[in-house]
Amino acid sequence: MARRRDRLVLAALLTPVTLFLGVFFLVPLLTIAVFSFLTPGLYGGVEWAFYHWNYGRIFGWADGIMEVFEPVYLRILGRSLSFAAVTVLLCLILCYPVAFWVSRLPERWRLVFLFLITLPFFSSLIVRLYAWLLILKPSGLLNEMLLGIGLIGAPLEILYTPTAVVLGMVYVMIPFMFLPLFAAVDNLDRSLIEASYDLGATRFQTFRKVILPQTLPGIVGGSVIVFIPSVGNFIVPDVLGGAKGLMAGNLVEQQFLSARNWPFGAALSMLIMSVVLIVLVTFVTRLRPKEG
């Protein structure tokens, strides 16, 4: 009898979430998949007929009449991947030493700096991006300062370039990289490092053979958490990037809100989704066994 009651309670706990996520999460994802194979209507709607040229436009087969193969889509997709990869790398280079430094501080200061790193997480994303718009503008703070010192003769063109986009993404993603890294660095077994030195290993050897393997889960975790939202990001390139900073997310947004070609937008976002699923499956499943 106890077992039957258990099952009732379990069903009561899980039914609402199953229904909710089933209807409002899984079904919308399936709708994207379905739409990516539908025919775009002439005036922005869709026709319920199978159509594979949405993908053909991207990958190189097109009917040549309604849809034309444009290598630009693959190029933008590649650009999104490389921007996201550079963002991950820069976040890693910036955060790793600082995570080390914070973990070695006295308890009091540790808490202060951990608070300082989580604070931007609580403040608005759009506000933090807007700040960089002010700083990077041709008449912005950076140029005024550099011109003032006499370091440059004419304003630098940073805003609306890929540099600005990557800078903005690194800036908003830093907390997501820092926290998993810090958790890994803070759990380092210091006696192993001492032992490595005592046995005559150089600093570099110690780092490569002792510190790096121990912090690898944090590095991989942080990288995945930063990479995924970066690939599909459209806000940062929208605010800070120009035509050369356009990313896959901007393409999707245009298809939905200005070009009104929903099936093509759905096909593009299927690509973003598959990149994400590949990354997740590759890295997360490999890390699992270590968690327990």
Binding site: F25, I32, V231, N233, G249, E253, V276
Partner: peptide
């Protein structure tokens, strides 16, 4: 219960899905 592992992964998916994909999925829906 049998589906425990499934639920654990399933509950992480909405968080890991890029915002833009979830956004347009809901819009179409």
């Amino acid at each position: 219960f049998r589906l425990r592992g499934f639920y654990r992964g399933f509950l992480l998916l909405p968080m890991m899905m890029p915002d833009i994909v979830l956004g347009i999925g809901l819009l179409i829906f």
